[in-house]
């Protein structure tokens, strides 16, 4: 009887495991923010292609494949307009003035990742509020490295659901 129970339990556990797991998902994007001249900044951001496609689809677009770069450039721009903002100073974003940025066209596509480049003029301190993919994936992390001079990386930051912004000093 005990052997029967033991085997039943093992079978049940195997079954539970079989239906409940998913491979380790990695919801990440990475970006470098580099000051190329006085107050001139270039932000290079890499996002997983399937993650961005999923996020843009949930935003209301039809299911899209970003491989059609010319067709989707405007949609990527609209997505970033909705989820990516820069603000002057380090105070409350609700009262701070936004900083204009431009998106390079076209974005660079490969099957695994999409690379985008944003350019803007800003005097530190300023805030980066990056909500890209945060509303799609609860465990999304957007990783940043900041370089203000040739001396190396001056700042690293992680943006996630708990802290959706950071201040470039």
């Amino acid at each position: 009887m005990m052997r029967f129970l033991q085997r039943s339990l093992l079978f049940a556990l195997l079954l539970v495991g079989f239906v409940s797991a998913d491979r380790h998902p990695l919801h990440l994007s990475s970006a470098t923010l580099v000051q190329t001249a006085k107050n001139q900044w270039v932000l290079k951001k890499t996002l997983f292609t399937d993650d961005l496609e999923e996020a843009m689809t949930t935003m209301g677009y039809e299911p899209i494949r970003l491989s059609d770069v010319a067709h989707h450039q405007a949609k990527v721009q609209a997505y970033l307009d909705a989820y990516f903002t820069l603000y002057k100073g380090s105070g409350d974003p609700k009262t701070a003035k936004p900083i204009a940025w431009t998106l390079d066209a076209p974005y660079v596509y490969d099957p695994e990742s999409v690379h985008i480049v944003l350019r803007f003029t800003a005097k530190p301190p300023f805030q980066v509020v990056d909500g890209t993919l945060l509303s799609t994936y609860a465990d999304q992390k957007n990783v940043y490295s900041v370089r203000k001079s040739a001396e190396g990386w001056s700042q690293h930051a992680i943006i996630d659901a708990d802290s959706p912004s950071f201040v470039v000093q």
Binding site: L10, L13, V16, G17, S20, A21
Partner: peptide, 15 residues
């Protein structure tokens, strides 16, 4: 150990 091993194997097979 047997229960944990079975659980790990079940999940690993599913993955």
């Amino acid at each position: 150990a047997l229960v944990l091993g079975a659980m790990c194997l079940g999940i690993a097979l599913h993955l």
